[in-house]
Design a protein around this nucleic acid. Structure first.
Lengths: 340, 340
DNA sequence: GTTAGCACTCTTAACGCCTGAGTGCTAACT
DNA sequence: AGTTAGCACTCAGGCGTTAAGAGTGCTAAC
């Protein structure tokens, strides 16, 4: 779709104005912002055409225009200025993240918080990796005479641990034998830890099998857990501030709370920044929202993603670079933390 | 404050009716529920007295009555029936919790979820212990040549772990020496892990001090983290459903999100079930809400708490036993999991 | 002490009215 | 042919009025 230069300017102005005020923008109002030597009537004509092209919409006949999903899309793809991050935001991000240390869990938590705060939207963060991440290490630590802790570390630095209890006594030599047996799993992907693999392992345990079974079950659970998307949500309540979402906030927040469909959204993202605007979303609960998601990589492997969910009326020009910057930073920190 | 038998019945009926419908209850309406041989006029007289005693209130002159905080309080303390848990709820709780295994983190998460679901309120759960819990074990596990994982286990079964990175190489013998040094901390309370203790430890490290410092810092952080209340919040969005909270939901949800004041609330609770109704709450954000909190113990030590936050119009008779049952169950499971 | 009856209060919804913002269209202008 | 002034039209939102309904408090009688 090719637009005249003037239409582009008008569309951009409508989008930006609406993002700023949240009010439908009318022709006269636009005149003030545009400083083109035109009358409101001309603008009206142009806006009418943009409407019939499906880029602008009117809430009702006698109201100004607001951008449609397609309108935002055109703006984001073709008109939006500066892909550079705002200096103030950069500092804010750096300041928040630098205080979080290198522990992935803490780091992601902090990243989600700063994102939600900064954008006044809901933020999601995940450390998931899908099933392609591999097991880097499995450790056991005796805790009591019948309990042991199992620790699983993935190639992307995710740490999962669990206390397991066995009915029979757990001795240190037993744990050593268990360690040797499970070391066969190191290097395998999380997806490969399935019933078959575990049965093979169990078979090699001989007389230890009975005592080791709870531990082995623990390992399976941990692998499952690590592979399973762990979605963290921040700042849902920010969404309550947006008039345009009001009608369905409850549905929206409820949708976000059930992490699972959100997982889909995240998994489907390509690398780089993914932007889904309004009706482009597959989920009806999101049809009035936009989602900006970006993945980060740890050790050149996909490490997880960060993103935000807000009204379609987002300040894309500002937020997209911020999200990108934040994810890159997180990926960088985590990679460095894992360096040998 | 002593009430006539008839006033008691009327107050109880108003409370129960209002809990059920959420509408101010009028004299005629009450008549249907009460099946006493009285006219609405008599009831009106009684209600007028209950109002002047501060137990009932009117939203406006021509509306029915709703209970005041004191009214609810009187009801809970003196009038409320059955402290027995509802069989359906018991099954629901047991079913949910039994699927969660014995891992404290997972268990508490599940407990919070079921509580929020069951009650249609916001649920809080914490594994905190304050600073009196002691350190049960500190373990280190090598991860890479410059990284190690530190694991801290408390007497109440809380497990905290962290990946630490040192600029100098971390060898296995070094970790062994570190283990020996830190074993001095085992048995100490979390509160005792302060700068002074750590400096003493650092002093005993000799030439290892430089390489061990990041690890030691990690231990301190973990102890802090374990001592620090970890408040988990579920089902905030449930609160959006209550008309009577509508005016301040945003403030309320925002208040809950900042876990810290919530922490106060929780810490101040006595053992057993704590109920705070409406204006009894210290925090203005909670003046239209009620809080039901209950602590659980692990190994006869205080292990944390579970609770819910909703409108004052809660079904106390049903929820109080449920919360109590759930906390007892959680405490029981966790105690058993730690048994030697 | 209880009750019937009544006047009174107050909320809520519905209705009509008005205003202001904004539009689309037409006819004139450059 | 593109631009503009002007005008009739539409519609949301605010405001006051009205009517209905729920519920009360009070009084006088039982």
């Amino acid at each position: 779709m090719e637009l005249s230069e003037r239409k582009k300017r008008i569309l951009a102005a409508v989008v930006e104005q609406y993002i700023k005020t949240g009010e439908p923008v009318g022709s006269k109002n636009l005149l003030k912002v545009l400083d083109m030597n035109l009358s409101s009537a001309t603008i009206r004509n142009e806006m009418a055409e943009l409407s019939s092209m499906g880029l602008l919409d009117q809430p009702h006949t006698s109201a100004g225009r607001i951008p449609t999903s397609n309108g935002y899309r055109y703006y984001v793809d073709n008109l939006m200025g500066s892909q550079e991050i705002d200096e103030t935001l950069r500092k804010k991000i750096e300041h928040a993240v630098s205080g979080a240390g290198t522990d992935p869990d803490k780091l992601l938590k902090k990243a989600g918080e700063v994102l939600a705060d900064m954008t006044n939207c809901a933020a999601v963060s995940t450390m998931s990796v899908g099933e392609n991440a591999s097991i880097r290490r499995i450790e056991t630590v005796p805790v009591g005479s019948h309990t042991a802790m199992i620790i699983l570390l993935t190639s992307t630095g995710i740490l999962k641990s669990r206390i397991c209890r066995s009915d029979s006594e757990i001795s240190t030599p037993l744990l050593e034998r268990f360690y040797n047996i499970t070391s066969a799993l190191v290097g395998k992907s999380l997806g490969e830890v399935n019933i078959t693999t575990m049965q093979t392992l169990a078979a090699s345990m001989g007389s230890d099998a009975f005592s080791m079974l709870p531990l082995l079950a623990g390992v399976t659970e941990l692998a499952d857990e690590a592979a399973h998307m762990d979605v963290r949500l921040n700042g849902q309540s920010n969404l309550l501030n947006y008039r345009e979402l009001e009608a369905n906030v409850y549905e929206l927040i409820d949708f976000l709370r059930r992490g699972e469909p959100l997982g889909h959204l995240i998994t489907n993202g390509k690398s780089g920044v993914n932007i889904t605007i309004g009706k482009e979303n597959k989920f009806p609960q999101l049809e009035n929202s936009s989602v900006i998601l970006s993945r980060y990589s740890v050790n050149n492997q996909d490490g997880g993603s960060l993103g935000l969910i807000g009204p379609t009326r987002l300040d894309y020009a500002k937020l997209i670079p911020s999200v990108k910057y934040l994810t890159d930073l997180v990926g960088h920190i985590l990679t460095k933390a894992l360096e040998e």
